[in-house]
């Protein structure tokens, strides 16, 4: 039971982290005007969070649907895709998540340590523009979830919000040809391991 409780807490922590990370990516990569962002403090570091209600709601709804998959250890990757005007991906921020077997989790497992590790990931995102090329104007974004098992089975689990349906993404539409791979950060804790890297299109146009 303690293990299941931990998975639920880990899903909460990860979704809160992903929310901060998505806002920060949208700010750093200039997907939206900087005027809608406000400086806030998360994990004891300054971050930029959107104040636009519609955008915030969209991100929250997305993550609320991702949470049950993380809770059941069924989300392999959460990917923030930035697309050009023609809806072709220019950058993919890939959060590769893996959780250890439930048996290895005990009441001694420290959750506070996880938050310290997540801070380091946030810091890396906030400076990632230094290693990425500028994006073309008019970019938009989407969030993808790579599930470990059959999508049709998991589809039911992600439809947790009425009026926020999910569909199976076409691989051709979300993949890039020969992307440049930029590792940003790897974090390893007792209860979750996460690797963040960016796949960047060679010629962004």
């Amino acid at each position: 039971d303690i293990a299941l409780l931990f998975l639920s807490v880990v899903a909460d922590i990860l979704c809160e982290f992903l929310e901060v990370a998505i806002h920060l990516i949208l700010y750093v990569r200039e997907v939206y005007p900087s005027g809608i962002f406000q400086k806030r403090k998360k994990y004891n570091v300054p971050v930029q969070m959107s104040c636009h209600p519609e955008l915030n709601q969209y991100i929250q709804d997305t993550l609320q649907c991702v949470k049950p998959l993380i809770e059941k250890n069924e989300a392999e990757k959460v990917v923030v895709v930035i697309m050009d005007k023609e809806h072709h991906p220019v950058e993919r921020f890939v959060f590769e998540i893996s959780q250890p077997p439930l048996l290895s989790i005990s009441s001694e497992t420290l959750l506070s340590h996880v938050e310290q590790l997540l801070r380091a990931v946030i810091l890396k995102i906030s400076v990632c523009d230094a290693v990425l090329d500028n994006n073309p104007p008019g970019c938009t974004f989407t969030v993808l979830v790579y599930t470990r098992e059959s999508a049709t089975r998991n589809m039911e689990k992600v439809q947790v919000i009425k009026d926020f349906p999910w569909i199976v993404a076409d691989e051709q539409e979300v993949l890039m040809q020969e992307p440049r791979l930029i590792p940003l950060k790897t974090m390893t804790s007792d209860i979750v391991k996460m690797q963040l890297y960016v796949e960047e299109r060679a010629h962004k146009g």
Partner: peptide
Amino acid sequence: KSAGAHILKPLMSPPNREEILTTLLEL
């Protein structure tokens, strides 16, 4: 990519930049 993995995405798109700029101007 592991075998059997599938990719899911929200059907709806987020608000686009133009919509957000319009809201900003209205404010």
